[in-house]
Each structure stands twice: as C-alpha cells, then as structure tokens.
C-alpha cells in the first residue's frame, strides 16, 4: 500500500473520482497546469483537460457562484478556495445560496458542490493564511462540514463528500498537509460522513478535536500519559452532522471532557460541543468541560505559537480536568 501525505491523498481521491464520474470538475485559482499552490490538483489538468480542470480568474465569488450553476445543471464541481482566509468574498454565495438552494426551491434544486480549502495556522502565515473559519459554516443550515486529520481519512471522506447529494465544506489542515503521512489504499473506499473515530482509547478524560489539532492532542496525550493520565481522543472528522453517539458514549465512560480547536474560543465549535454534552450528559460529568482554543484575537504572526493551543496547554487541561 502506498504511503501518502494528505495532499497526495486528496489528489488521489480527485483523480479516482474524475475517472469514475465524468460529471466531476475542478475549478479555482492556480489549480490547472500548476496544480494548485499546495499541489493538491497536480497532474489533473494534463489528464482531464481544461474543461474539467479550470484555472479561474481571481474571484472566489465567481468560483463558488459558477460552481453552483454547474451543479444545478448536473455537474459535480469540486472548487478549491486557495486559503480558507480568502473564502469570504464567496460567503454570500455559500451561505445564502449554496446552503439554501435545495430548501428554498422546495427540494427542486440540490447543489452538490464540495468546496475544498486549506485552513489553520502553524505555517507562519499571519492573519490571512492561518484562520479556522469552520464555525461560520457549521452555523449555516444546509452545509456539511468535514475536516480530516490524516491521509487515509482525507481520501475516504473526500470520496464520500463528492458522491453525496449535499454541499460540503471540506477543510484541509495545511499545517500537517505534508507532515501527516500514512498508508492509503490505491483502490476505491469511502468513509461515511458523520462518523467520528476514537484515535486513542482511554478511560479518564474525553479529548475532542479535529484536523491539525488531532496531532497536537496526540502529543498532549503522550505527555499526560507519561505522568500516569489516560485520556481518550476522539477525532470528530465531521463537524456537521456530528457523531453525537460516539462522543456521548465516551463522555458517559470518562465523565470528563476537554475540547481543543485552533479557532477563537467565543462561539467556536467547542461551544456547540459543550452545549450538546451539557444537554445530554450533564449528570455523567464529574468536572467542568474545558476548552483549549485560540484566543479571541485575530491570528498573530510572530506570536503564533503563543496563540495556538500547544501540546503543553492541552496536556495541562487534561491533567486539571482529570484531577478536578
């Protein structure tokens, strides 16, 4: 089985699906001959030609607006937004149009567009190459939000997303784009959207995370384990729809919860997780739910390592929650 990084896994999934389904098209800035600034669409232009792999003018609203039109006509567009930080010019098209088309047309017009976009910090990118805007999209009814943490999941989840009937925001953790490597089957497989995965079994604290934070949390767990703690880590993989069952089962077992994400704390995805757990498993809790997140400031440049949840910050939360 080949060992791929996340970029290669995404590339593999796109190639596989474009071969299998002639309706699949890719569009975005620099995705053509160049293969994307992160090279996720590398080779696709040469293989499938300019009608199916389109370099667009520099306009995210145009990329998503036209993708919606293509989907209405029956294609399966997989647009790329070069950085999640630059998705905002397309916000109206995503939030008011893409997310609501099926609903507002009484089910007549589904818009199965899968928007791929790298997100997150840790690459010395300052405000505009580091943000984690997932909460805006989770908060928008009609969008599914998927964030893989590793190559195997990236391929399986992307194939599910493209084969689905709904719009998906597919956010790729760029900090571990190349660093996260793993075996990826060459053939076709899917990972269902809406299924979390327990990536470390433990008994003491439930650690909830997704994307690049999964790697931070694994490191944190090692540190905490060295001091005798035993956290369980759940990689949520899909933020919406959330796999509440897997989360609640773990919470009922451990009675303690730590949530980690890079995005700012206030109204971040952790707030939803905490509310859901409080609603459904309050009586199982033996400690306050802890959140380790980015601070409520814009993403800084020089001090990004101070801003981002570090393994030490997560480990501290594990220990405090476990011993509360």
């Amino acid at each position: 089985m080949p060992v791929y990084n996340i970029i290669q896994a995404v590339n593999d999934a796109l190639r596989l699906e474009m071969k299998r389904d002639p309706r699949v098209v890719v569009l975005g800035e620099d995705v053509g001959k160049f293969g994307g600034v992160f090279r996720a669409t590398s080779g696709l232009y040469d293989e499938f030609g300019p009608d199916r792999v389109m370099d667009t003018p520099l306009a995210e609203s145009g990329i998503i607006g036209t993708a919606i039109g293509m989907a209405l006509y029956g294609l399966k567009p997989v647009p790329e937004i070069q950085f999640a930080d630059f998705i905002y010019p397309a916000y109206d098209q995503i939030v008011n149009e893409l997310a609501k088309f099926r609903y507002r047309s009484g089910g007549q017009y589904p818009t199965p567009v899968v928007i791929r976009t790298p997100y997150g910090g840790g690459i010395r990118g300052g405000h505009y190459h580091s943000q984690s805007p997932e909460a805006y999209f989770v908060h928008t009814p009609g969008l599914k939000v998927v964030i893989p943490s590793n190559p195997y999941d990236a391929k399986g989840l992307l194939l599910s997303a493209i084969r689905g009937e709904d719009p998906v925001i597919f956010m790729e953790p760029k900090r571990v784009y190349r660093a996260a490597k793993g075996e990826v089957p060459e053939d076709d497989y899917t990972i269902p959207i809406g299924q979390a995965k327990i990536v470390r079994e433990g008994s003491q604290v439930t650690l909830l995370c997704y994307g690049a934070m999964v790697h931070t949390c694994m490191e944190a767990a090692e540190k905490a384990a060295a001091e005798g703690f035993d956290p369980e880590i759940i990689d949520l993989r899909t933020l919406l729809p959330l796999d509440t069952e897997t989360v609640l089962q773990s919470v009922r077992k451990t009675g303690r919860v730590v949530i980690a994400h890079e995005a700012p704390r206030t109204c971040g995805y952790g707030a939803e997780l905490a509310a859901m757990i409080a609603e459904r498993a309050l009586l199982s809790l033996e400690a306050p739910i802890a959140r380790v997140t980015g601070f409520d400031t814009p993403f800084p440049y020089t001090l990004e390592n101070e801003y981002l949840p570090s393994p030490d910050r997560v480990a501290q939360a594990i220990k405090q929650t476990a011993t509360y």
Partner: peptide, 30 residues
C-alpha cells in the same frame, strides 16, 4: 501585546484570556 488593539480597550473576556495565556504553559522559545 497579542491582546492589545483588538479593541480600543481590553474587554473583560480578553483580560481573562490574557491572564490565562501569561500563566502558561507557554512555548519554550517565545
């Protein structure tokens, strides 16, 4: 200074987060 200039004045929630940040743990090389 990470918490300065978000607003004209530091609101209470950022004051709390600033204290939390300074209390650490913090990265070895600041």
């Amino acid at each position: 200074s990470m918490f300065d200039d978000v607003f004209a004045e530091l609101p209470p929630h950022l004051a709390e987060q600033k204290a939390e940040c300074l209390a650490g743990p913090r990265p070895k090389s600041g």
